[in-house]
Simulated scan of single mutants.
Amino acid sequence: MDHFNRLVSEQMATMEKLLFLQAELERCQQIEAELQALQNETDLESIQADIQQMKKELKEIQAMFEKQTEEVINSYREMNLTQTI
């Protein structure tokens, strides 16, 4: 009977360790998932910041292009006026 009780006690201790490790594993996996989500969120914020910066630069370049177009048109008009006179 003592042998049986010792085996059951060892098995219960092993079961306790098993349950503890399973709970720890689940907890760590949850933390891992949260950290990955935060990392993705950080990446998303970084990409969104890049997009906003590029949109700003695009507007500036579009404005510059429009100004240059106007200058080209005005120069062409002046050239034609000078040549026809």
Rank of each mutant, 00 (worst) to 15 (best):
M1W: 11
H3K: 12
H3W: 09
F4D: 11
N5D: 09
N5S: 11
R6F: 13
R6I: 14
R6K: 09
R6D: 06
L7G: 11
L7D: 13
V8M: 13
V8I: 06
V8T: 12
V8K: 14
S9T: 14
S9C: 08
E10W: 07
E10C: 09
E10L: 07
Q11R: 14
M12W: 11
A13L: 12
T14E: 15
T14C: 14
M15C: 09
E16S: 15
E16T: 04
E16L: 11
E16P: 04
L18S: 15
L18Y: 10
L18F: 04
L19S: 10
L19Y: 05
L19C: 15
F20M: 05
F20D: 09
F20W: 13
F20H: 15
F20C: 10
F20N: 14
F20A: 12
Q22H: 04
A23L: 08
A23G: 03
L25R: 04
L25S: 08
L25T: 10
E26K: 02
R27E: 00
C28T: 10
Q29K: 06
Q29R: 04
Q29P: 03
Q29Y: 02
Q30M: 12
Q30D: 07
E32Q: 10
E32K: 08
E32W: 06
E34Y: 01
E34N: 02
E34V: 00
E34C: 02
L35G: 00
Q36E: 06
Q36F: 14
Q36S: 08
Q36G: 01
A37Y: 07
L38W: 08
N40S: 00
N40Q: 06
E41H: 11
E41Y: 01
E41T: 03
E41V: 02
E41K: 04
T42A: 15
T42L: 13
D43F: 10
L44I: 01
L44M: 06
L44Q: 12
E45S: 10
S46V: 02
S46M: 10
I47A: 08
Q48W: 01
A49N: 11
D50H: 12
D50I: 00
D50K: 10
I51Q: 06
I51L: 02
I51P: 00
I51C: 03
M54N: 11
K56W: 12
K56E: 09
E57V: 06
E57H: 02
E57D: 07
K59G: 04
K59I: 12
K59C: 05
K59P: 03
E60F: 00
E60V: 09
I61R: 01
I61S: 03
I61L: 04
Q62G: 03
A63G: 04
A63W: 00
A63R: 08
A63S: 00
M64H: 15
F65K: 13
F65W: 08
E66T: 00
K67G: 02
T69F: 07
T69G: 05
E70V: 11
E70W: 04
E70L: 05
E71P: 01
V72L: 12
V72Q: 01
V72A: 02
V72M: 03
N74K: 05
S75F: 11
Y76I: 13
E78V: 11
E78K: 09
M79A: 15
N80V: 11
N80C: 11
N80R: 02
L81R: 09
L81Q: 11
L81C: 01
T82P: 02
Q83A: 14
T84D: 06
T84G: 01
